[in-house]
């Protein structure tokens, strides 16, 4: 049996936790396209799921994961979902602070420019909207949409920065 769920998350870690909650109930993720999730029913708790921003990752990375018994179940845009059988024990992609920090940095490197671009284009659209242009109404709406996008991206960016800061702080006393 399959089911499709629609759910919007601002925090990719919360999304991952939700996918794992469903896996524990026997609903295993098969496909994820932005906010649409396809689950297939199976043995409860069989898999542990992890998501990752995979911008710039090449084929050899997926082959490497595969050789570690990690199955890539879904890849859409810059996000991928993996699973590993829970019987193998705990499953984390990154096990120490330096590699976790590196990963968080790769996310903000992508998110921050996009958010800034939305602000700039948003301002431009709103200014255009206030001129006597024939498309003024549309420009203002677009501009507002840009601003909303930037605001929506600000939430995860702030969370990631906080996580990163926390990890970096620990590195002052701990090696990893």
């Amino acid at each position: 049996m399959k089911k499709i769920k629609f759910r919007f998350f601002l925090d990719y870690e919360k999304e991952e936790a939700w996918v794992n909650e469903l896996a524990a109930q026997g609903w295993h993720l098969q496909k994820n396209i932005i906010s649409f999730f396809v689950f297939e029913q199976g043995e409860p708790g069989k898999y542990i799921y992890r998501n990752e921003l995979v911008e710039g990752k090449k084929k050899d990375y997926y082959e490497f994961l595969e050789s570690m018994n990690i199955e890539c179940v879904s890849k859409f845009g810059v996000w991928a979902y993996y699973r590993k059988e829970a019987i193998d024990g705990d499953f984390e992609l990154f096990s120490d602070a330096p590699s976790k920090i590196q990963y968080l940095k790769s996310i903000t490197r992508l998110f921050i420019p996009i958010a800034l671009l939305n602000i700039i284009i948003g301002i431009f659209n709103i200014i255009t909207g206030f001129t006597a242009s024939p498309v003024a109404f549309m420009s203002i709406n677009l501009g507002i949409l840009n601003m909303v996008m930037a605001l929506l991206m600000y939430v995860p960016i702030r969370k990631i920065q906080r996580r990163k800061k926390h990890l970096e702080h620990d590195l002052h006393i701990f090696e990893a």
Partner: peptide
């Protein structure tokens, strides 16, 4: 990769479990 992960876990008696992304 998998061999590295297994040996490290064994050597450290299960204390050090390296993530696949970390090893990569």
């Amino acid at each position: 990769g998998y061999g590295i992960m297994q040996l490290v876990e064994e050597m450290s008696k299960g204390r050090v479990r390296l993530g696949a992304g970390t090893i990569y």
